[in-house]
């Protein structure tokens, strides 16, 4: 089990030449991810979802100050352990396509990822991972700039799965994909969870997250408001505990498409 326990995060920055101030970005983030589940994390952009992903994997910038606790299978997930597990048991599918090396063909990057993870036959593992995401033949041999945004995203997914990590943190893996490829990526995450892996799906797309997720944690202004089973998102959202989660659900175009009353989305009192 991957546990995040009251995590808070500040960024230190200079104000003028001498003064330093701490800018709070995560205030109170708690959730638990178990094997076999797709756990969606939804919320507005700027709410701190990606920072949480970087905190889990241990790739925060140097001026970040972290409080609270991360645990993996009961033991603290501290910086040395993160470094040891990163890319092996713990994999991140980053949001930015800039994570690909622009000078290396895609299939080699995936092979490297498998190598780093210590897979015994990295080439075959890379081949398998690329086939799984529908990148076969010529398209797998292209350079990143020759790929469309959707293809590049699928290469990132292949890099994360080639190493057979147990825990996958997918940061907006389906953004910019057309509906067919989006469903393909989400289905693959579902299959990975069904095969016993723990998948954290960070997304702003509540509608499609619900089609694969078991549980959903709602994020707002650096705080996790609630974790609800996916089937709590139905009807008028009466089963949801927080006003923000209800407002998010009702704002979908096939529900009310409504701008919620201000008091419903206001941060915690």
């Amino acid at each position: 089990m991957l546990e995040i326990d009251h995590l808070a995060l500040d960024f230190l920055r200079y104000r003028g030449l001498w003064q330093r101030e701490a800018v709070p970005c995560l205030r109170d983030v708690s959730l638990s991810l178990v094997r076999g589940e797709v756990h969606a994390v939804v919320g507005a952009s700027g709410a701190g979802k990606s920072l949480m992903a970087q905190a889990i994997i241990g790739l925060l910038p140097g001026n970040a100050r972290l409080r609270g606790e991360l645990r993996l299978d009961g033991a603290p997930l501290d910086a040395p352990r993160q470094a040891a597990l990163r890319g092996k048991r713990l994999a991140l599918i980053p949001q930015s396509l800039a994570a690909l090396d622009p000078l290396v063909r895609s299939h080699r990057q995936v092979t490297w990822a498998a190598q780093r993870a210590g897979v015994s036959a990295p080439r075959a593992a890379a081949e398998r991972a690329l086939t799984e995401v529908g990148m076969v033949g010529d398209s797998a041999r292209r350079y990143p700039h020759q790929l469309s945004g959707g293809m590049a995203r699928r290469v990132l997914l292949a890099m994360a799965t080639a190493g057979e990590a147990d825990w996958l943190i997918a940061d907006e893996p389906s953004v910019g994909l057309d509906p067919a490829h989006r469903d393909g990526v989400l289905d693959q995450l579902r299959r990975l969870a069904d095969a016993g892996k723990g998948v954290l799906l960070i997304t702003h797309d509540l509608r499609h997250a619900l089609s694969v997720a078991d549980r959903v944690t709602v994020f707002h202004a650096g705080t996790t408001l609630e974790t609800a089973p996916a089937d709590a998102f139905q009807g008028r959202g009466k089963a949801l505990a927080s006003g923000y989660a209800r407002a998010l659900w009702r704002a979908l175009p096939d529900n009310d498409f409504a701008r919620p009353p201000v008091h419903e989305v206001a941060p915690l009192a």
Binding site: A44, E172, V175
Partner: peptide, 14 residues
Amino acid sequence: SSMLDAITQAELWQ
């Protein structure tokens, strides 16, 4: 609005 959350999306379009 494809990268916006549902509330921001609804607000922007309205």
